[in-house]
Design a protein around this nucleic acid. Structure first.
Lengths: 130, 130
DNA sequence: CTAAACCTTGTCGCCGACGTCAAGGCAACC
DNA sequence: GGTTGCCTTGACGTCGGCGACAAGGTTTAG
């Protein structure tokens, strides 16, 4: 299939597919007139890329998964390099969850404090000489 | 004080302070020779900015807090606009925590699956005709 | 006098995953 | 043969919070 069809079937754009190619992630054949030609396997590769991008991976992190698929494995995550990336990403996510949790607590406290202050000000305003 | 001293006291750079000024967050007076002159109140403003940036706010989100401080409040978060931003950010963080938690579960499952697959492959390799 | 250490404005660079033209070639249909 | 719609490469724009550099003015110390 040509780039337009692949883009539509993968739910993305032709520009995006050319970008993936420039990053070495997708490798289409070329037809006689220079058009990029993709097979079904490339569709699966693009799906893998999109799926991993969606959960916060960068293209560099995704490279091992694509290589794993291209090596003939039915899943992109069974190869050692992919597993290593998964472990690292899990650790990163855990770390980020911790920090985001701390941010949440701080936001919550700050909000509670601000509202308490506003109520106090309101009381003083309503009874200035209480 | 001049920009260099403020930068050092606020733990940042002169470039950063000029950038905040270009975004309308800091407003120094100018001395006769054109140098930016800051007072203590501006140091507190910069501290507020840095503190909020550190927990993931953008400069646009921070603007109401600075305005609140500049309006004479002892804390930047007691004004209605600031409270509104705090509420919105808390909601955003909660949302992000949810999605990140989902990502974590997915990563965890994917990792468990990949390892299970590898062990299975390993067993088949050690006992090809079992 | 000069060097050092400040300051000024202006401009370009960075990161990452693309969007968005521009200018042209190729294919198919009426 | 003209129009439409696909495709090609190339290059610049986006977002945010600055870093880094250039080319110059100011002030202070020796």
């Amino acid at each position: 299939m040509r780039i337009g069809e692949l883009a539509e079937r993968a739910g993305t754009s032709a520009r995006t597919l050319r970008y993936y190619e420039s990053q070495g992630l997708v490798r289409p054949r070329r037809s006689a007139n220079g058009y990029r030609m993709y097979d079904e396997a490339e569709l699966r590769v693009v799906h893998e890329i999109r799926s991993l991008l969606a959960i916060g991976f960068g293209l560099d992190d995704i490279r091992p998964f694509v290589a794993c698929l291209r090596a003939g494995h039915h899943s992109g995550d069974v190869c050692p390099d992919s597993v290593a990336v998964l472990r690292r990403k899990l650790a990163e996510v855990d770390d980020y969850l911790d920090r985001l949790g701390a941010v949440r607590r701080r936001l919550h406290d700050q909000l509670a404090h601000a509202i308490a202050q506003r109520e106090e000000t309101c009381l003083r305003t309503r009874r200035p000489a209480d």
